[in-house]
Nucleic acid binder design. Sequence first.
DNA 1: ATCCGGATCGCCT
DNA 2: GGCGATCCGGATG
Length: 220
Amino acid sequence: MTANAAPRARRSRLPEGAALKPSFYDRDTEIVARELLGAVLVCESPDGRASGRIVETEAYLGPHDEACHAVAGVTARTKWLFGEPGRAYVYYIYGAHWCFNAVTREVGHGSAVLVRAIEPIDGIRLMRGRRPRAKRDRDLTNGPGKLCAALAITGAHNGLSLTRSSLTVHRGSPVPDSRVLVSPRIGITRAADWPMRFFVADNPHVSRTPSSMTARPYAP
DNA sequence: ATCCGGATCGCCT
DNA sequence: GGCGATCCGGATG
């Protein structure tokens, strides 16, 4: 055995590139939602690292958007939604699930991007342990509550900097406009027809493909 | 593949 | 007191 035979268990692959800076998020929320497609969401926990490529997002524009939590104003729940761009807004819903958002625009605006689906990259074994009911790999992260469970994102991450914390977003490989589709948002009752959902065409990890009538190509 | 109901609880009215 | 930016399992076509 040689002197430095101790195996390095960690393959340090960094396919995700640099973490996105706050200035990335301090822009129109629809633009941020669209450009987050292809970015990589990473969550480090004591158990290890779990990450995935973002393939589906929704824009929530602020108090003038009736579907956005910002309609309630600044409350205990929405405190971080009205905070600095580039931080996490994590909320609890239906007494069961966490949902992860990236805050956009300037402080006090109350807008964010909901990440609805990712394509697993690292930590699939961890994800399986955290979501034992998932039958296929794609069921691990094809929904906003599912991906939070798979990455172990909880209210403990609320307000964390996505540039420098245990929960980060990195510039991945950009998705060309020709691969992006737009549709109404899912699961809401107000402003239900606004085309604010962005997803990668034909990607099997998207939460669900709406009836083809409701999705259109992305036209900047 | 699609539809439907139940679970479950923190937050706001 | 009522309502979700959801998930899951079971029934149905």
